[in-house]
Write a protein that binds this DNA or RNA. Structure first.
Lengths: 155, 155
DNA sequence: TCGCCTAGTTTGTTTTTCCAACTCACTCGG
DNA sequence: CCGAGTGAGTTGGAAAAACAAACTAGGCGA
């Protein structure tokens, strides 16, 4: 039997196990902005250099970043997002949106311009009906025997 | 003058400062699922009890959770999401989507059913044009003097 | 009264973080 | 050729968190 103390199987937990450590998502932010060099990351994120080195190794290992040479001759590297890393941009964008709304309501520290010409205000919608998702519109169905949920809800 | 070592001002960083610590988003997941009692949280998340107690205090302080009595007479409490907490569901949903795609591609550990009758597959779109956001469709404009970005990008 | 439940708190140990300083390979100016 | 500078990290030691297990405290129910 599965030891009674295992946590709930969950893709959110699985994802956070890869990119949920302190600074990891900020690394991804900078790398998506095009600032993939070690010293840029140190400055722009404000993380200790050793921690950053550890995070970068991990992010490369799990496949969201890759390390590429931008110069031979002094051999120098930079980090870039892989396709899987770019797939995390929606997470960054939704985190940004929440912070813009709840923490910096007067003026966002960064504006994203969408190719359509407008300032990006992201919405998370159901791909089937296109409606914006709302808590009460969701019902959760755990797929693992032994696990239930209490109310209607997300996650 | 602002000490030259401050990190980039950023709503993503601000948001993660509130809910980015280990277990915080998992607490929110459980609470959104309706499992707001302390011992449920311990079991479903697998966090040490003292850490969980610390996180819960913090999440209440920053206003994403509230502690309410579900019974007088044995006085007992449970945690519930505030409106600001529910606003974080898009973050949970996008994290889940990434994990379902990249880590559990054969079968998600949890299925969310949308009120429209379909299994929820969330998309992050531009509220203006409705197009799904793609990295190359974004241009970042920092609003703080002294900060730039390198390439076109997100965050 | 004994034992059990919920909701934590305490204690002592193991990991991480953090910071500053240091390394190493290479280039450039004089 | 020498010394300074840059990029990309390592290293060492102190401080802070995380961890696991045991313990507390109020109320119940039998």
């Amino acid at each position: 039997m599965p030891a009674a103390k295992d946590p709930r199987p969950c893709s959110i937990a699985d994802t956070l196990a890869l990119v949920g450590e302190k600074y990891s998502l900020l690394v991804l932010r900078e790398v998506c902005l095009g600032n993939g060099r070690f010293d840029q990351l140190v400055r722009n994120i404000g993380a200790p250099r050793d921690v950053l080195a550890t995070r970068l190794k991990r992010l490369v290992d799990v496949g969201v970043l890759e390390k590429t040479a931008y110069s031979e001759k002094p051999l120098r590297h930079e980090y870039r997002p892989t396709p899987a890393g770019l797939d995390l941009e929606p997470v960054l964008v939704t985190l940004k949106e929440w912070g813009d709304r709840h923490l910096n309501p007067e003026s966002p520290p960064m504006v994203l311009e969408h190719v359509c010409g407008h300032e990006l205000v992201p919405r998370v919608v159901c791909s089937e009906c296109g409606d914006e998702i709302r808590h009460d519109d969701l019902t959760a169905h755990p797929q693992t025997p032994g696990w239930t949920v209490a109310g209607p809800a997300v996650a």
